[in-house]
Design a protein around this nucleic acid. Structure first.
Lengths: 126, 126
DNA sequence: ATTTTGTTCTACCTTTTATAGAACAATTTT
DNA sequence: AAAATTGTTCTATAAAAGGTAGAACAAAAT
């Protein structure tokens, strides 16, 4: 686990943890079937509270990315399903993208510039 | 002003106001030079506190989208500059997009699916 | 048998979000 | 000239969110 937490960021610590684990899954640093470290050990590694890590894990479980087995641990799920992306997840993506795209339009971004941004980010993250 | 506030949303009221004004600028419902309603009248319209609207306006000013002239009001700026998008704004867009793209990758989204989402949103918003 | 696991509970603190009212000086309207 | 409206600033209060802390529990792993 190579997570780096910025304590004074305006992004909550538990969100930083979630986002970096998601990036780890995106770039296959973490693959389906892998176990995440225990909330206690990761908390100790990061110098944060156990409950903060626990909150992040439950956020990831809510998104369907991991499964928390009580008294055992957290396991990364298979999320790249065969039959394509779930409609539920597409709706979620659209909800997250909408305010970002609106702001981009106001800045004068065109479709090609959006596509370039996405392409660059996919190359960076994948 | 056709703003609709959901008081019990997990999105702060002042953020809802900012986002909907940004959408108004994106779809040219509001154009550069237009004055925004006074913080008092908009607050009365929406049934929220004056200070909540004030916070939203200052957030929009921080993004460079409006100019607040003390004792006068708030005016929408020209944001689609001639010389293309500012690098500062592209950095900001990338920061906002990064966690969204990462999550999309984990869901199995490919470039073409991202592009379709963006295209659809641009059509809806513009 | 011991350690480690996630869970649950109480407790405390800071920051954020939101509301409320008052006062001010400047501007606009009447 | 008088009245109303403007954004700003100040104090105050309250709820929610974010974060830490410690303890206890039963189940699982060592």
């Amino acid at each position: 686990m190579f997570l780096q937490i910025e304590p004074y960021s305006d992004i909550p610590i538990y969100t930083q943890i979630s986002q970096q684990i998601i990036e780890g899954i995106a770039n296959k640093d973490i693959i389906p079937g892998d176990s995440l470290p225990s909330v206690r050990s990761l908390a100790a590694d990061l110098g944060v509270n156990m409950h903060t890590v626990n909150k992040s894990y439950h956020e990831l479980e809510k998104k369907g990315l991991i499964t928390i087995i009580p008294k055992i641990g957290a396991v990364v799920n298979v999320t790249r399903e065969e039959g394509g992306v779930k409609g539920e997840q597409l709706d979620h993506m659209e909800k997250m993208l909408r305010p970002v795209v609106a702001e981009g339009i106001v800045y004068g971004l065109g479709l090609s510039e959006f596509e370039l941004l996405i392409k660059r980010l996919m190359k960076t993250l994948q």
